[in-house]
Design a protein around this nucleic acid. Structure first.
Lengths: 132, 132, 132, 132
DNA sequence: GTGGTCTAGACCACG
DNA sequence: GTGGTCTAGACCACA
């Protein structure tokens, strides 16, 4: 389910953390859901257990997960809203590397920018309709 | 012009590389354009010159840039597009997970979709303008 | 085991890279073999560890080596042979200028042909022996 | 005639010097032959004239060339014998990188070691016959 | 203990 | 003044 990419120079622990946050944000993990054990996830991802444990500990400190000893690790009941940066400028600063990654990866696949823009607009259309 | 984010766990060199690739894909850097000198970009980004040099060297090996000794570093004439899927449908199938990842990561940061769409459109404006 | 020559104007990293490629081609390093650690080879060659790391990284990108994080660096299972000319004749045509260059350069250093032949035979002996 | 390779990390001046020495050793340049002017060779090789001048100066200092002002640069009448290192060990140290280069380059072309050894032996055979 | 990243700073090759 | 190489040494991620 969670996927990591060993040829991405981003540290494994950061990839795993980002994947868990994204799964929660995307609704694939919901409040109260139980996460795999540290050892199980380590086996699944072919990663050292210490690495997974570090991620869980970090996310617990951040208030995203909660550990009930002897039972398991769970998504927090009231998943704290991600603290979106206040100013537009700050949000753009966070957003930029994510978009850069999209553009760089798409370009590596030979997909041109206009095609990306068109695709995003198509989604936007759907988005607007759903709201109405 | 290029921007990096020091609180992003992605290595600096990878962020810079990605930013340059994205700038080319997004039309902000075009074939034949000269890049900032190694030392100048290092100053701009408040990064060590070796880090920039590593990025330029890597992008040259990847065929994205070309460096003329004693002169400078330039965007290559034909930014190679190795494995472009043939049909529009195929390309869209490749593109989809990349956009999904962007949306998931942005959402995990608390950034909403309309803001992303707006950002992409801003790039598109620049792209179209510079083409003229 | 590997040797470099500090009075050769060829950059150290290029000499080391060449020596590793030659050791693989000559059968002194075989698929799956572990290379010395970055730091160990650096000590052996009296070279900075960064220089060795640069070589290993370059050879990994070239598909010659593979590194397992936290474990070590290994000769790749299938040393890719990208553009092997099909016929023996064609290969000999490609080989000829390389050998000519060797003979010319050696001669410029005052080293005679029989000595080169003897050296190649010495390698051949090792090659055959290790195959068993 | 002289060829340099811009993707070889060996400095241009060293490549040019080696090429001239090899041409003399191989008999393509003989005692008293006139070399191209600095500017001509610079144009031919698409290299800065300073670089060629540096090479000529170095070879003159080494006693390989001699410059007659206003006339040109010539291969010295009695081309000093290259000072072959005295001991077998030292000669092997000089020889090794040259053979490494052959093995590495041949391997990059997909040519295996036994084929190289066979080719060298074939030359050796011819060599011996000529002597007899 | 393994490889990877980054820095500061020196020196070289080239134009 | 441009990029390239090398060093010394710190700190990080991973097993």
């Amino acid at each position: 389910m969670l996927a990591i990419n060993r040829s991405d120079p981003t540290p494994l622990y950061a990839q795993i953390e980002r994947a868990i946050r994204a799964a929660i944000a995307g609704g694939r993990l919901r409040s109260g859901d139980r996460l795999p054990t540290v050892r199980q996830l380590a086996v699944d991802l072919r990663v050292n257990a210490n690495t997974v444990a570090k991620v869980y500990a970090g996310l617990e400190r951040a208030g995203v997960l909660t550990t009930r000893r002897g039972i398991g690790t769970f998504v927090r009941d009231i998943p704290t809203q991600p603290t979106a940066p206040a100013t537009r400028r700050d949000r753009e600063r966070e957003l930029r590397p994510l978009v850069d990654r999209l553009l760089a990866d798409a370009s590596a696949l030979g997909i041109s920018f206009p095609e990306i823009a068109a695709y995003v607009k198509a989604i936007e259309g759907r988005h607007a309709k759903e709201k109405s």
